[in-house]
Amino acid sequence: MLNHIWFWMIMLSLFVAAGTDIYNEITAPPPMETAGEELSLNKRTKLGQLSDAALESAQTGVNISLGLIGIMALWLGIMKVAEEAGFIKILARMVAPITRRLFPEIPEDHPSIGAMLMNIAANMLGLSNAATPLGLKAMEELQKLNPDKETASNSMITFLVINTSAITLIPASAIAIRASLGSVNPQQIIVPSIIAATMATIVGLTTVKLIQKFEKRKKRTEGEA
């Protein structure tokens, strides 16, 4: 699925940029001599902007990844201590009634549950710096249970959907920007945000569970045939 999305995003972007450029060159060719500084072809055309953006994104990707390393090391260190001491198992047991339903494939006191719980808690508190490392720790633990290492497991997808529709108690950056632009009541968005995010989580989880049920049934009938 991601293959298709990726492919079409790139292809359509190229077509749209090329189409816009052709249209602009035909309808309004730029004057040969302009008063001020003339924009280079690379800056003026959509295709030029697109190439610049693509090349720049590679650098951004590296910057984000490298920026994660320090905070990643910190949280992985703390989590390792908690794991060795058995604290993660205690956490996992506390939420067992919920996780049993959401993640039927995961053993009850598996370390992945503790990490997922910590990730969701960090997201709720708006600690996005801590949420990503904890989420990646959870993925690492889920990968240990995954029979096919190149393919996402049901538990991974369930976790990811919970994560992308994460309920945040304080959407801090949105509130900060509202305040800086002179909002009378910047935190007014808290309750609507929680309601919208809850709706997203419900729809996401329902979708995931329906697909999992459907696939299970398909597999069963295939087995009988």
Binding site: N163, T164, S165, A166, T168, P171, S173, A174, I175, I177, R178, I189, I190, P192, S193, I194, I195, A196, A197, A200
Partner: peptide, 8 residues
């Protein structure tokens, strides 16, 4: 801002 705060 609600859209920004409620999705990832």
């Amino acid at each position: 801002s609600t859209m920004f705060g409620s999705t990832e």
